[in-house]
């Protein structure tokens, strides 16, 4: 139904909304931040994002190194291997500020999309069953150390223990 007053109200809705998402005063008006982060951010990148068809790429965009590590580790495991997941404080040293959530057995299983035999670091009762552990180093690309090279394996476990102890987690 057209009338000048209806037109004025329609304009008021549009202008009011525009002002709400434009008038920046974070402590009073949270809507510009909401608009920038939750709406405009996606509209600005939608074409680029929509071109990314690969499921793996999207997983990496969201879960970064947690996702890549899980896949790389799983690819390197051999039949019969039982993987010891590192303690979170140890892995966090290499996460560049991001939380190393892959150290949680549930998350490792989720991100690796596999059900390889695992032992979480906190699972002290089953820790000795693991024959392979995750070695993260900023300069080398070793990734896994096997128990059949005891000296190197034990030194890694010592690093795990030290990292756990220093962060107050039960070693």
């Amino acid at each position: 139904m057209f009338s000048v007053r209806s037109l004025l109200l329609a304009a008021a809705v549009a202008v009011g909304w525009w002002l709400l998402i434009r008038f920046e005063a974070t402590s009073v008006n949270p809507y510009p931040v909401w608009y920038e982060n939750r709406v405009k951010f996606y509209y600005d990148r939608m074409d680029t994002f929509a071109g990314i068809r690969s499921i793996q790429k999207r997983m990496f965009m969201r879960h970064t190194f947690n996702y890549d590590l899980c896949r790389l580790i799983t690819e390197r495991l051999k039949p019969g291997d039982t993987l010891l997941l590192p303690p979170r404080p140890y892995a966090n040293r290499f996460g560049q500020g991001q939380e190393a959530i892959f150290t949680d057995a549930r998350i490792f299983r989720y991100l690796s999309e596999s059900s390889v035999p695992l032992v979480a670091w906190e699972d002290q009762a089953r820790r000795s069953r693991a024959n392979i552990a995750v070695a993260l180093e900023p300069t080398a690309f070793e990734l896994l150390r096997r128990r059949d090279v005891p000296a190197r394996f034990d030194s890694l476990i010592a690093e795990y223990v030290a990292a756990s102890s220093s962060s107050g987690v039960q070693p």
């Binding site: 139904m1 057209f2 209806s6 037109l7 109200l9 329609a10 008021a12 809705v13 549009a14 909304w17």
Partner: peptide
Amino acid sequence: RLRLHDPVTLVI
């Protein structure tokens, strides 16, 4: 019955 501000709201 739609009013003029309804399409504006719908678009937003």
